[in-house]
Design a protein around this nucleic acid. Structure first.
Lengths: 147, 147
DNA sequence: ACTTGACTTCGACATTACTTGAAGTTCTAG
DNA sequence: CTAGAACTTCAAGTAATGTCGAAGTCAAGT
């Protein structure tokens, strides 16, 4: 198994800690691509590992596959990205990740604050209040559409 | 609509920016509870707003309802929590939220780092590598079980 | 050239998190 | 007291994210 060789679906799945069915599913949904052998079997470029790692990490923090897919369009599907491509990718994702981090930090901090807030009626509780939570059904991936 | 009054399902839903069906669903799944009128209609204590706000925020950052439900067991179902209860709750969630924040920050930082890492073969890329991603199918809510 | 494990597609099934619709009941303003 | 909005339950449907099994094909070692 040469280091420059391509990966079978089984090899990639084992490296990534998921089922082959998941990789086929991602491919069907257009998040990853593969070359095929003469016989029709998938062969993944090694870059698929980085790509799928990103997918899984993003999923774990609440981003849906469609949004992830949209963001991945910046990267070339079939080869490792160039430095420029990667940089563009990273810059595009940054605001979305920061937004998600802010949601989490806000949740954490409001939890801590509310310890002492003693609010009996929630209307007077500006610490833990709906409204900052209901709003985010908007564009969402708009950062990633950039020029 | 007195401030100390209870909320109908419609009022609560409007406040929270979601459908009444979602509240009924949360109740059926045991994440929230309600009193009933003589005629069988739901009446929510105002505290349900805070509770559901928490549920929605937690969902947005990738936590499943089951885990959220587990974590909410620390809080009284039918009334506003005391200061002690809230503190216990906040402390129990803290590590889980921090973990989720670390996942996000790690993702963000690896994106930034990989810009210059120039790794051609992913095996030599310790910056963006699977393994830190595959591992977390474990207990998960174990922090929340504590004494 | 076999054999055997890994691969292929395809369709059905599973789970999570709800929404929708039907058929009927309750609450409240006038 | 009554009209109509808002509520009730229950069953079925939907979307996202996969998994599983069957039936058959490919690839790699001996």
């Amino acid at each position: 198994m040469d280091l420059n060789e391509q990966l079978t679906v089984g090899e990639a799945a084992e490296r990534l800690g998921l089922r082959t069915s998941a990789l086929r599913f991602y491919e069907e949904r257009g998040l990853i691509t593969s070359a095929r052998t003469a016989g029709g079997q998938r062969r993944y470029a090694r870059d698929v590992l980085r790509r799928v790692s990103f997918i899984r990490a993003a999923q774990q923090v609440g981003l849906p596959l469609d949004e992830i897919k949209e963001g991945l369009r910046i990267l070339p599907a079939d080869r490792a990205p160039t430095k420029d491509e990667w940089e563009h990718f990273a810059k595009a994702w940054r605001p979305r990740l920061d937004e998600q981090i802010r949601t989490l930090e806000g949740l954490r901090d409001r939890l801590a604050l509310c310890i002492g807030c003693g609010c009996q009626t929630l209307d007077s509780c500006h610490v833990f209040n709906p409204g900052d939570v209901a709003g985010r059904q908007g564009p969402g991936a708009r950062y990633l559409a950039g020029p």
